[in-house]
Design a protein around this nucleic acid. Structure first.
Lengths: 134, 134
DNA sequence: TACATATACTTGCGCAATCAAGTTTCACGC
DNA sequence: GCGTGAAACTTGATTGCGCAAGTATATGTA
C-alpha cells in the first residue's frame, strides 16, 4: 500500500489545524481576546518578572515586530499590559503584564485549557508530543 | 516527570505549524499563488470533472462562503478558473478549472510537493499520519 | 571622534479573510 | 399556487496581520 503523498497529507493536516485554531480562538473570543493577544498574555505570564522586550515577544508569538506593535498597542489602551522603558538601552520598550491583564489571563486560560485538553484527547497526547520532540 | 500541559503543548504546535504554513506559502509565492488559491486549484484538480460548487469549495478549503468569493473572483479574472452555472439550481455557481489553471497548478505543485516532502521528512511521516488517522 | 552598520521599534499602505446584512432561488407544508 | 424558512451566494465594513520605509539609539571600527 503506497503511503499518502506528502502534499495530500499536509493539506489534511492544514485543515485539521485550522479547526484547532478556530476552536481555541472561539474559547478566547468569549473573553474578548484574539489568539495572538492570548499568546502575548501567556508569554508574559511565563516570563521572569512578567516582562519582555517587544522583539522577543514577537519571536515567541510568531509575529513580526510590526505585528506586535499592532497587537500590543490596543492591549495597552485597554490596560492589559504596560509599556516600560529599558534601563540600558533606549531603543527597547518592555511590555509588562498588569494585574488587570493577569486577571483576564487567568479567566481566559480556564476555557483555553479546557479546550486544549479536549483537543489533546482527540488527537492523542503521544501523537502531538511526537511532533514537538523533533 | 509530569506530562506537558495541554496548553503549552498546543502553543508549541501552533508555532511549528505557523512555520509550516510559511514554508508552503513561500513555495507558492514564486508562482504568484496564495495558499488558499493553491488549495482551490488542488481541490478542483481532484474533483470529478474538475468542478465544484463554491460552497463545497469553501468547506474544503476552510474558508467561509464570503472568503471563497473573494479568492475565486480574482482567479477568474486571471483565467485560472471559470464560472459555470448549475443545471437544476440557479443559486449555485460552479467553479471549474481552466486549462491555464491546470497548467499553473502543475507548475506550482512541483515546488509544493518538494516542500511538503521536506516537511514530512522533518516531522516524520508516521507522526503526521497518526494525526489524520483519528 | 566620527562614521558605518545593525538593532528596536513605528507607521503607511495593502491584502486576506471575517461577520452581518442583503438578494435570489429553492423546497415544503398548506 | 402561496407563504415560510432555508440554502447559495455577494457586498460593505472591519480586523489582523505583513512589507517597506522611516526614526532613534547602540555598537564596532578606523
Amino acid at each position: 500500500m503506497p503511503a499518502t503523498p506528502s502534499d495530500a497529507l499536509l493539506i489534511e493536516i492544514t485543515n485539521a489545524f485550522s479547526a484547532v485554531q478556530r476552536q481555541l480562538g472561539s474559547a478566547l473570543s468569549i473573553h474578548g481576546l484574539g489568539f495572538s493577544e492570548y499568546l502575548v498574555l501567556w508569554y508574559l505570564h511565563n516570563a521572569p518578572s512578567n516582562k519582555l522586550r517587544r522583539i522577543d515577544l514577537a519571536d515567541k508569538v510568531g509575529l513580526t515586530a510590526s505585528g506586535i506593535t499592532r497587537v500590543v498597542n490596543p492591549m495597552e489602551k485597554t490596560g492589559l499590559v504596560d509599556k516600560e522603558q529599558a534601563a540600558r538601552d533606549a531603543r527597547v520598550s518592555l511590555v509588562t503584564l498588569t494585574t488587570a491583564g493577569a486577571r483576564v489571563f487567568d479567566e481566559a486560560s480556564v476555557g483555553f485549557r479546557g479546550t486544549a485538553d479536549r483537543i489533546v484527547r482527540q488527537y492523542g497526547r503521544r501523537a502531538l508530543e511526537a511532533l514537538v520532540k523533533s
